[in-house]
Design a protein around this nucleic acid. Structure first.
Lengths: 252, 252
DNA sequence: GATCATAGTCGTCTGCCTGACGATAAACAC
DNA sequence: GTGTTTATCGTCAGGCAGACGACTATGATC
């Protein structure tokens, strides 16, 4: 195939972000309201065009910072604090996914601890954390009784894929700690698993499992009582990234 | 962000293919020789531009058919024969990955049973199955004593990611059957695992494990003796796609 | 201050799965 | 027949997970 610039059609390339966090025992995703057509007024995933001199991961990190103020976690610096986990998810390129033009979107998945409040260009009403089931239900009515419109474009599919990735990845990696603050208790980590998987876990077996997995948790020495009840030990994420044996997701 | 066609730079979008198979107890990948600069004469992964009206998966399936004659396995037809498994792998978009222009490549992973012979535009000398370690070694000398040049572009990284995906995915899915013909024996399936993982497995424990996992294998009733020794039962891939519990890859 | 509710932590027991490995079965080569 | 190769069945011990009892340490309530 000789090199011929007219031999290939031009594409626009964007990054879209599935930013997940756990709030009030529910897995939530960041959604922004679209200000212009198509899908004006509908909720969508945050994202934007990749710039001419930018790598895909850079573009995703830039969008993440613009939308949330989060810095992306550099994989080369595992002990970095307050950085969000960011990884490529999948690429969506259906010719009709954007009615305006041919857009290929490289979706990324970000996991963040619970954050104060979202921002989207400074306008809080145009960005929110919403439970993923609420964003994924087709039509129907949300918790507040208002009608729910599906996400713009193919973003329901992207969000669904991102949630599934997160659900499976916390099984065999220490990624669940990305949902926790720098220091956290075993109970807080358990509530992350329960929210992401949507199941209840036995606190005793969970405690035995996570404290017995080498490299998963490192005790800081401190304790906290912010959950009420007996004070709990505080931990930081250990160096291990892959858990062997993995956490087991209960059968449905 | 208002819609402004001049606000985004144009990209070329390609699909690159990591086509894996098991030949002579070794994990092999399809490589094609580049006929023009850049990297003229070097080996590369097969691939090509995505057309204007084509989905990414369609483009990957078309390239796969052009290079190997394989039809992609439609996930909606699980019992389809002789179709190769095809899935999206990852997307590579470093601004300098192609010296000519800005190219974003959506890599796909294909798994195929052992095939007669590769073809690349009818010229067999420009396409071959090569063991992945041979393609991935940087410089040095191959089995035949000839100097080995690294793969073109970032294809070593793509191939490495594809191999790692395959290695981990046969742990928890029935994907290893994609390397086998329609009917196969437990021993043949074991040799697939051994080649992909590069380890030796205990035949007795392997047999117990795979025949005891519901939905993994379905006996066809026939037997074969094509491996020599006692005749072995023939199986087809069962309906299960996810293995629970998974196959365990031995520690290094 | 006693009592209660809440949450955390340590143990025990049982069943299942895995790895190691012995034994037998059925073909082919000589 | 003997040896070789591959397939298949069985046995046994160790480890891990699920179920669940027991105890500890805090704050809330009376």
């Amino acid at each position: 195939m000789p090199y011929d610039p007219s031999a290939f059609p031009p594409f626009a390339v964007t990054v879209d972000l599935v930013v997940l966090t756990v709030r009030r025992h529910a897995l939530c995703a960041l959604a922004v309201r679209r200000g212009e057509p198509p899908f004006q007024g509908r909720w969508a995933l945050p994202g934007g065009f990749v710039r001419a001199d930018e790598d895909l991961a850079q573009a995703a990190a830039r969008e993440l910072a613009e939308e949330t103020g989060l810095r992306a976690h550099d994989p080369a610096v595992p002990a970095q604090d307050n950085g969000a986990h960011l990884e490529q998810l999948a690429t969506y390129g259906d010719p009709k996914r954007d009615p305006r033009m041919r857009v290929v979107s490289v979706a990324h998945l970000a996991l963040a601890p619970d954050l104060p409040a979202p921002r989207a260009g400074g306008d809080a009403s145009n960005a929110r954390w919403a439970p993923v089931e609420e964003l994924l239900q087709q039509g129907g009515y949300g918790r507040d009784g208002e009608p729910v419109a599906p996400l713009a474009f193919d973003h329901a599919q992207i969000l669904s894929d991102g949630v599934e990735r997160a659900r499976s990845k916390i099984e065999y990696s220490s990624l669940a700690t990305a949902f926790c603050p720098t220091e956290f208790t075993v109970g807080e980590l358990r509530r992350v698993y329960e929210a992401v998987w949507g199941v209840a876990l036995d606190p005793r077996n969970f405690h035995r499992k996570v404290t017995g997995t080498p490299g998963f948790l490192v005790p800081t020495g401190g304790t906290t009582t912010r959950q009420g009840g007996r004070p709990a030990q505080l931990f930081r994420a250990g160096g291990a990234t892959l858990l062997n044996p993995p956490m087991l997701r209960p059968e449905v």
